[in-house]
Simulated scan of single mutants.
Amino acid sequence: MPAYFVARSVFAVTALTSTLCLSGCQQTIADAPYLAAFSEPEILRAEDAGAPPGARPGSCWGRDVTPAVVETVSEQIMVQPPEVLADGTVLSPGIFRTETQQRILKERRELWFESPCEEIWTEEFTASLQRALKVRGHYYGPVTGTRDGRTRAAIRRYQNTGGLDSAILSMESARRLGLIAVPRDTI
């Protein structure tokens, strides 16, 4: 077999492998915002350790934690002024020290809210949620009945309009979407 034929075959296989890898990477890159930012959120039962105090037994809870916003400010403080002659000649430069301070601009916030429990999250419930969010312009994917990254992103977009920045569906949002009945005593 001629050497140039072997080299061309190796080149063709390498090019094909690279193309396949890149096409796979493009899919991963396109899905990255959904996969990385919206990992499965944690929903706690009232009986679990770490649940909010005073939670009604049998209820489930989500938690939204907003981190603190901290600003770091550095200042140059003159310790010794420069020595300068009348003609502008610098005999010795000024001496400065740097002081760094951190200021909290916005405090850390932890918000607990009631959420539908795991047993409610059937395929039918999830498909109904996807349809309700799609009609309101928050869900962009196909209705699959799977609680995936796109669904969690749509939940976050929908709830963000009401001030809750969480991918965990709140009971209040589920009621507003018509997915869970409103208790009679609140009507």
Rank of each mutant, 00 (worst) to 15 (best):
P41Y: 02
G141T: 03
I29M: 07
R108Y: 04
E47A: 15
P41M: 03
V69I: 11
V90G: 05
S18E: 10
L16D: 03
P67E: 13
L85I: 02
D148N: 09
P116R: 04
P67T: 07
F38V: 02
P82R: 12
R147S: 07
E119D: 14
P81A: 12
G145I: 10
A55E: 05
D48N: 14
C25L: 15
T100H: 02
A49Y: 07
T122E: 11
R97N: 09
P142F: 08
R8D: 07
I29A: 08
Q76H: 11
P183N: 07
S173G: 07
A51L: 12
M78S: 09
R97D: 12
I187A: 04
A7P: 00
L179A: 04
P52I: 10
A49H: 06
D64M: 15
R156Q: 14
A153D: 03
G141V: 03
G163P: 00
G62S: 13
C21W: 13
R136K: 14
P142Q: 12
P93Q: 07
V84W: 01
R152G: 00
T122F: 04
A127P: 09
P142A: 14
S92Q: 11
V65F: 14
E110G: 13
A86F: 07
E124A: 15
L133I: 01
W112L: 09
E124N: 14
Q130Y: 10
E110M: 12
K134I: 05
S23N: 12
L91A: 06
D64N: 15
H138F: 15
L20H: 08
T151V: 03
I155C: 05
D185N: 11
F5K: 14
L164H: 07
P183F: 04
R152V: 01
E75Y: 10
P82A: 14
D48Q: 13
P67F: 09
C25N: 09
V84Y: 01
S128F: 04
I77L: 15
Q26A: 10
S115I: 00
M1T: 09
G163R: 02
C60L: 04
A3C: 09
S173D: 05
V143H: 11
E123Q: 13
S59D: 12
V6P: 02
T100I: 08
A132P: 02
G149V: 00
T144V: 09
V90C: 06
Q26H: 07
L22Q: 11
A12Q: 06
S166P: 09
Q26K: 04
T146G: 01
S173M: 13
Y139A: 03
R150T: 00
Q102Y: 01
F113M: 10
E114H: 08
V90S: 05
L85K: 10
V13T: 08
R136G: 01
A36V: 04
A55C: 11
V73R: 11
Q102F: 02
S74H: 03
V6R: 14
T126N: 07
S173P: 01
T122P: 06
F96V: 08
Y139W: 06
T161V: 12
T161P: 01
G141I: 03
L91G: 02
P81K: 05
T14D: 05
T28N: 05
R63K: 15
M1P: 03
S115A: 15
E75A: 14
G54C: 09
G24E: 12
P142T: 12
T72S: 08
Y140D: 13
Q159W: 06
T17C: 04
T28D: 06
A37E: 04
R175A: 01
F113A: 09
T144W: 06
G163T: 06
S115F: 00
F96W: 15
E172M: 05
R157S: 12
